[in-house]
Design a protein around this nucleic acid. Sequence first.
DNA 1: GAGTCAATAAATATCGATATTTTGGAGGAT
DNA 2: ATCCTCCAAAATATCGATATTTATTGACTC
Lengths: 221, 221
Amino acid sequence: MNVLDFNDGKETSATQGAYLRLRELILTGQLKPGEKLKIEQLRGLLNTGASPVREALSLLTSDMLVERLDQRGFRAAPVSRSNFNEILLLRCNMEEEALRASLANADADWEEALVLAHHRMQKASKQRSSDFELAHKAFHMALLAKADLPLLARYCDQLYDLNIRYRFLAAGVSSYGERSIEAEHQGIFEAALERNADLAALLLKDHYKRTGQYLGRQFED
Amino acid sequence: MNVLDFNDGKETSATQGAYLRLRELILTGQLKPGEKLKIEQLRGLLNTGASPVREALSLLTSDMLVERLDQRGFRAAPVSRSNFNEILLLRCNMEEEALRASLANADADWEEALVLAHHRMQKASKQRSSDFELAHKAFHMALLAKADLPLLARYCDQLYDLNIRYRFLAAGVSSYGERSIEAEHQGIFEAALERNADLAALLLKDHYKRTGQYLGRQFED
DNA sequence: GAGTCAATAAATATCGATATTTTGGAGGAT
DNA sequence: ATCCTCCAAAATATCGATATTTATTGACTC
C-alpha cells in the first residue's frame, strides 16, 4: 500500500475503503443523482487505483445506489418521486414483517440492546449531534434485530439507506421538521417493549408514512 | 479482445459474460455451495483476465450467490435449511404484494403476454424441454409484470433465482415430482385472468409452499 | 506426540499500461 | 440551417505484472 496515504488503520482493503467512502458520498448527496462517475475522477478523490474503484462501483450497483451503463461506465442512481414512493411502500411491508418476527423472538438481551439504542438516539437528538443519523438507524435496526431473517434484514437495511438518501437530498430541511418524531419513537419503543406487535407495527408504519408524506412534498417529478 | 475465444457475438463485455456464466454455474450447482472460487481457476474456465472475474464476483455478491471473505477471496454462498425457509417465506410475501399490484394495473397487453408465457411453459413442460426452467420463470414473472414496482420486481427475481438454486441442488429429483404443478399453474393462471387477486395470491403462495415442503425434505441441516 | 514458529508456496489485491469504445465536434453536403 | 460522416479526444474495459496477504509445510521444542 502507498506509504503516503495516511490510512488511519481502519480499512482493510482499498476496495472496502472505496466502497464505504463512495457509499457515503452518494447517500449524503455529495455525488448527485444521475451524475456520471468517472473512474479517473474517483481515483483522484479516493487516491487508489482503478481496480478498487471499479469493484466498489460494482458493489454499489447491487445496493442500487449506482447504475452501470453498458460500456459507458457508471453513474449515481437517479431519483424520482415514484422510486421514493416505492421505497416507502416496501419499507412499510418489510419492516412490519421483520418487526413482528423480531418481537416474537424477543428476549432480555434484545430488550437491553433496544433500550440502549433508544437512549443513544435521544441523546444524539437533544445534542443535535451529527451522530443522530447513525443512532436513528441503529434504533430502527435494533427493533428488527431478533427477527433472525438475514435476507429480510439485508433488504430492510438497504431500503433504509435508500430512504435516507432522499432525506439528505431534501436537505436544508433539517430532515424531519422536528415534529413529533421524538414522541413517535417513544410510542414505537414502548409498544415494542410490551411486545405489542400490532401496535408497534402500526406506529412504525405511521412513522414512516408521516416522514414520507413530509419528504414527498419536497420535490417534484 | 482475444481473437481465439470464439465469443458467439452475444456478450458485450467480458465482465457481463463472466457474470452470466458464473451465475449459471452457481445456480445449477456446478459450482457447489461453500466452494472456494479462486480467481486463477475461474480465469481459466472463462478465459478472461482477472479483472472481469473479480468484478463479476463482486456483482454476484449482491445477488447473494457469492460471499466475499475479507482478504481471502470469494466462495459460492453456502446453503442451509434456514436460508431455504427464509427464501420461501419472503417469496410468498413479496410475490403476493407484487401480484396484487400487478392485477390492479393489469391491461390487455399484460393479459396477452401472460397467455403466451403460460402457453410456452405448458409446451416446454410437455416436451420435457430444457427450456422449462426459463419458461417457468417467465410465467411467474409475467404474473407480476404490471406491478410497476421495479425494486420489488428485482427482489422477486433475486429470490426466485435463489430458490431455483435449491431445486438444482436437490437435483436428480426432477424438481417437482410431477405432482399437480400443471394444475396449480392453471389455477393461478385462471384466477389472474379473472383478476381475482385474493384467489390468485392464495394459490400462488400455496404453490410455493407445496414445492417448498417437497424440497425441504430433500436435505438436512 | 502435540504444539509452535519460521520459511516457503499459493492466492489475493492492486497497480500501471494498453486496447477498445464512446463522445464531441469540425467540416462538407444537401 | 440541418443532417451526415469522419476524426480526434476522452473514458472505459481489460490485461499482465507486482506487492501483500494468507495458507502450508516441516523442522524444532517441550
